[in-house]
Design a protein around this nucleic acid. Structure first.
Lengths: 152, 152
DNA sequence: CTATTAGTCTAGTAAGTTAATCGACTTAGT
DNA sequence: ACTAAGTCGATTAACTTACTAGACTAATAG
């Protein structure tokens, strides 16, 4: 399950993607636009900044902006940073592997075999979907909705 | 992330699948074979029983056994029962749908669109994989390992 | 150079979840 | 009646989540 933290992060990154190249955006603006508790959002943006995904400027005219293009930030990267590994079990994680203590033979553990499939399917989607892709999908959905409206 | 509870449940069901048709198995036996805390396992098996996935007999010669064939119990069903919905967000769950309060238009929410893909991919794997499939996979892996050993 | 704006950092905390454990109770077989 | 074995209710320690408070630091305008 995606935590609120990560959901907020993705919402905030959505705003900053739309605003990409237009200068910094205030934490308060993002918080208000997406109904995110301001102080909580601070922590989140800071974490994204320490990771390099975001950059910021202090003082008047300051705010946050993306550290690289929306097409260079994957949803998977954001989720891993804030929620931890995508894998449903540590023993099938590529980025945070840890063997199960009680497992005799990892290669013949049925649960592991199935969960590895899940991990791979999840990672394939999330690592190949960028913020730009996400906005693109929204665009497509909006256009589709509009064409439906006009059709009525 | 899969909880220990669900992991234990799948391990226990693995044992009961292997023993399917051979009469009841003791909680203590399962606990010992899979290194699961006995008392914790009780709760888990009880939950699976109330759901109909397991059946039990009390008193001497009693124990637990599958309520239906291993090929009729999906991994997805077990996970949903013990861990809740597979979906990473309630708004993309088929079995426990709940709209996001702050979402204006669900159909044009980027996060939702991406997470729906993840949910569908996950559900496709977990709902189509049964306990029998899981054991089959293990068998295949074991055979493969053995053929490698002989080759040395 | 100082007032204001805006991000940074350290704590703390209430509520909820997870992973158990304990002990009394019930039912079934010999 | 005795014993084996599952059932049930309560409790708990540790951890995580989703915040909030407040002091601090840096940048810009005038």
């Amino acid at each position: 399950m995606l935590s609120k933290k990560t959901k907020y992060a993705l919402k905030a990154l959505g705003v900053l993607s739309k605003e990409y190249g237009q200068g910094p955006v205030l934490i308060s603006d993002i918080a208000q636009r997406e109904s995110i508790p301001r102080k909580f959002l601070e922590l989140i943006l800071l974490e994204l900044k320490n990771d390099g995904t975001l950059q910021s400027r202090k003082g008047k005219g300051g705010g946050y902006f993306l550290g690289r293009a929306p097409s260079q930030i994957s949803v998977g990267h954001v989720i891993r940073l804030l929620d931890g590994p995508l894998a449903p079990l540590p023993c099938v994680s590529k980025t945070a592997y840890m063997r199960c203590r009680e497992c005799r033979d990892e290669h013949t553990c049925g649960i592991r075999i199935v969960m590895k499939e899940v991990r791979d399917a999840t990672a394939k989607i999330l690592d190949s979907t960028t913020l730009a892709d996400m906005l693109g999908r929204v665009e497509a959905a909006v256009t589709h909705n509009e064409s439906l409206s006009y059709a009525i």
